[in-house]
Simulated assay, not measured.
Amino acid sequence: MTNNAVASRRAFLGAASAGLFVGAAGCGGGGGDEVVLYCAADRLHAEPILREFEARTGIRVRPKFDTEATKSLSLVGSLIREADAPVCDLFWNNERGGTEDLAARGLLAPHRGEAWEATPERHRDDEGLWCGFGGRLRVWIVNTDRMPATREALDAELAKAGAGGAGDLSFAHANPRYGTTLTHFSLLHRELGDEGLRAYYERLDDAGRVIASGNSAVKDLVAAGTVACGWTDTDDAYLALEAGAPVETLPVLLPGPDGPAPVCIPNTVALIRGGPNPGHAARLADYLLGKEVAVRLANGPSRQIPLTPVSGPLPEDVQRFAALARDAVPLAGLDPHRAAVLAWLSGEPTTGDAA
């Protein structure tokens, strides 16, 4: 985080705590009984939850969704452009990197509700600027008609490709500029640095890489046997499994403090600084972060992992995901690596490995 960003964040938080900003617990603001939500989560999973909130509260939710390929980064860009005259009240992001970028720019408002208090520290902002919920694991999805779903088989094919051999592996991942794939590449950059990530990228090219429009498209390519395997999230992989496709999954493992560990990427929710309806935004945030929505997401088609203790029943696969997520790779401190990956993919010069 730059010194200017830190100063901006601290100045805003000081003003908010002094009462100079109409806080999230205040009245609804200028939009009447409505709240404007920018939503990077899949419409399929988000809309039923938003409609239920409307039915219970009488508050109309005006969501803005974006495309599967660009949704997270595109919505972050919109929020940055609108900073001087915010339109959005609440941001439901499908990852946390872009949300942390907004926090560093001083564009988020603090809100510490009951759910924030219950959320583990590693899945929330210390100052209440955002809170995580509904985690998904990054996984290898493997077409078992094309190759065995084992780490040995994957490692062997990647080794052949890296040595210039004629491996049989064909591999897909989503565009690394966006969403959870950007987080994945940011973690790879933290592990490998600039040159190491470029070399790894070339190995994937040698292995027959296909860059898909999104994680759902990766799932479709593997399920159809167009490619042998790929990276996606557990919510997309589950849809292929539920449809009876010949696929199996293996958690992506990256270096953690105690050795190789899974990657768990939460959704995040954050109030927008200066949004026209802060009271309604806080109410919707508390609803999204609540236990009822956590159980609903866990039992729904997205199979998302509760990040707080819940009392409702959880499917066996979500229980397995949750056990893995408890030992997941830390995601804190990825900002410089995220910036380095975006600069590299945009063709901008880099200044060496990120700190």
Rank of each mutant, 00 (worst) to 15 (best):
A237G: 15
V318L: 05
N299P: 03
P110C: 11
E248R: 14
L20Y: 03
R320G: 08
N94F: 05
L90A: 11
V61D: 02
P48T: 14
D101Y: 02
D84T: 14
G193R: 09
G132S: 15
N267L: 04
S78T: 13
V252H: 04
I211N: 06
V76M: 13
S346K: 15
T70D: 11
D168A: 13
R62L: 13
P276A: 02
V247S: 03
Y238R: 06
A228E: 07
A207R: 02
A69Y: 04
V210K: 12
T232W: 00
V247G: 06
N175H: 11
L137Q: 04
N3K: 15
E248C: 14
A156E: 14
E95G: 06
G274T: 01
V76D: 08
A282P: 06
P176H: 13
P315D: 13
F53H: 00
G208H: 00
R146G: 04
G208Y: 00
R190V: 05
D168I: 06
D233C: 07
L307G: 01
G30V: 14
F12T: 08
L271F: 04
R124H: 07
G230N: 03
G31A: 14
N277K: 00
D194R: 07
G347L: 15
A294E: 10
A18R: 05
T57S: 13
G29D: 14
A11L: 12
L241F: 05
